[in-house]
Nucleic acid binder design. Structure first.
Length: 487
DNA sequence: CAGGAATGTCATTGA
DNA sequence: GCTCAATGACATTCC
């Protein structure tokens, strides 16, 4: 272990002689007006110590800036390694003196350019940002990587692709189409329907396929078999899903008044939105009596259609807009959704909202009150599933949009905070540069006044000043420092 | 006519 | 095992 005791010259005594009131070993006043400097009322006999402590404190303003500008001189960077060396907090080698222009506070721009790369906001804000985003990280990712939901258009109708090749669509539904949809289409063919002659309803969307749980459903316009549009085959039924965009007069005239009360919207989420749900989650009907008349006639004649009047966009699924025409004829309310039409076609004896919104127990109880065919049961369960999912999708999208808005707002705030921090950083840089300059001047000033026992000045190349944690300042020969470094 | 928006639907997953 | 909500993906239609 190396000891520096023999090499260290207590500086206090010398400085006490050299220091003059109001000045620090050469007249460099430490009462500065730049950030980080503090004026103090320390006694003059300790002014040197206090001054050094101030300098020590000030130098802690040093930023850790990798690759900092060319202004940064090695001797300042080499100050930090002195800390573990016996607790000396500051040293300075003047073998590489600061450039003359060091005191010019013109380096701010030098650092500004590096800020974004050196100090990412996410790091600086670490915990806060994490807390702010912890609820929606995945959504943020989605936001950053918007998904294009549209596949490449095909020259063939999608369903034809599925029917013909079964491999055109490279997603998971293709498998289902292969296993289920294709079989169903084969059934159609078996029943004499052209495979490629698509009904209007079938062309509307995939909904007509109902791949998972129930077979496609009938259209009131194209009745097949006993129940309109249905014919029990194999899986329970086959059907003609032909459903023109507008119902024929015959079919419309045959309709039981079949409408729904769209007024209520139990989901508060949808209440606040601009898109009232198509379905009415809050049943307003009381048509649960067994064997009661088919409860589709709910809307009074002349009552405006809330679906159409609500301002709900007619875009989207064709099952909506295809029934906007009959709005003019208030006397003939018609079902507006495909499921409604299907339910009507199969004479489902309870309203849509009950099918969808009743609790499962009540729903099952409701089913037990009627004698339903398999087709009817399947349809009811499908309607229930689709209806719930439809509302869920609306809620999900609304949440997603709100999340996006929230994230954008946070992004703006963080950008503003980043700009503020960048400005603050620039200010600190300028202050630090100024302080370093003052320190260099002070250091040189101190050395210029130091004298050895023979009255000779100390060489700044052979000695350096160091301060211990207790505030004492020592003059340390470089040779001693080298030995200590070797230790 | 292309592309975006809105909406419905299905499949899947986790509670 | 069933139900349900949430959500990604896809389809469809309209603007």
């Amino acid at each position: 272990m190396c000891s520096t005791a023999n090499y260290v010259l207590p500086l206090r005594r010398t400085c006490e002689v050299l220091a003059t009131p109001g000045k620090l070993c050469g007249g460099v006043s430490m009462s500065t007006n730049f950030p980080g400097a503090r004026s103090h009322g320390a006694p003059q006999d300790t002014e040197m110590d206090v001054a050094w402590q101030e300098l020590m404190a000030i130098t802690e303003l040093q930023f850790e800036v990798p690759g900092e500008g060319s202004y940064e001189t090695p001797q300042y960077q080499s100050m930090e390694p002195m800390v573990p060396m016996g607790g000396y907090g500051i040293t300075q080698s003047h073998s590489e003196p600061l450039p003359a222009a060091a005191c010019e506070l013109n380096t701010a721009e030098t650092y500004d350019g590096c800020y974004s790369e050196e100090v990412p906001v996410c790091h600086r804000l670490g915990s806060n940002a994490e807390a702010m985003y912890r609820h929606s990280e995945s959504q943020l990712n989605q936001r950053m990587l918007p998904v294009s939901s549209h596949t490449q258009p095909s020259l063939m109708a999608p369903r034809e692709q599925m029917n013909v090749s079964g491999t055109s669509q490279g997603h998971r539904r293709a498998n289902a189409c292969l296993s289920q949809g294709l079989n169903r289409h084969m059934l159609w063919t078996t029943h004499g329907q052209n495979l490629h002659v698509r009904s209007a309803d079938d062309l509307e969307s995939d909904s007509g396929l109902s791949l998972g749980s129930s077979p496609p459903l009938a259209s009131p316009d194209n009745p097949v078999g006993g129940a309109p549009g249905y014919q029990s085959v194999d899986i329970g039924m086959t059907y003609s899903d032909g459903e023109p965009d507008s119902m024929t007069d015959h079919a419309r005239g045959a309709h039981i008044p079949y409408s729904m009360d769209y007024q209520n919207q139990s989901h508060s989420y949808l209440h606040s939105g601009a898109h009232p749900s198509y379905f009415s989650p809050q049943p307003t009907l009381s048509h649960t009596q067994p064997n009661a008349p088919t409860p589709w006639s709910v809307k009074q004649q002349g009552q405006s259609n809330l679906y159409s009047d609500s301002g709900l966009s007619t875009r989207g699924s064709s099952q909506h807009n295809m029934y906007t025409k009959p709005e003019g004829s208030m006397s003939t309310p018609v079902p507006r959704s495909r499921d409604e039409r299907r339910a009507m076609a199969l004479k489902i004896p309870f309203p849509m909202d009950k099918m969808i919104n009743l609790p499962v127990d009540d729903f099952n109880e409701l089913l037990t009150q009627y004698t339903l065919t398999d087709a009817q049961l399947a349809l009811v369960r499908d309607i229930r599933r689709r209806g719930k999912n439809k509302v869920a999708a609306q809620n999900c999208r609304k949440r997603k949009l709100e999340s996006i808005i929230h994230l954008e707002r946070e992004l703006n705030q963080l950008q503003a905070q980043r700009e503020h921090l960048a400005k603050e950083r620039s200010e600190f840089k300028r202050s630090l540069t100024f302080i370093k300059c003052r320190l260099t001047d002070l250091y040189s000033e101190v050395f210029s006044h130091l004298r050895d026992e023979d009255g000779q000045p100390y060489s700044i190349d052979e000695y350096s000043l160091q301060q211990t944690p207790d505030g004492k300042v020592y003059l340390v020969p470089h040779t001693n420092m080298q030995k200590r470094e070797q230790c």
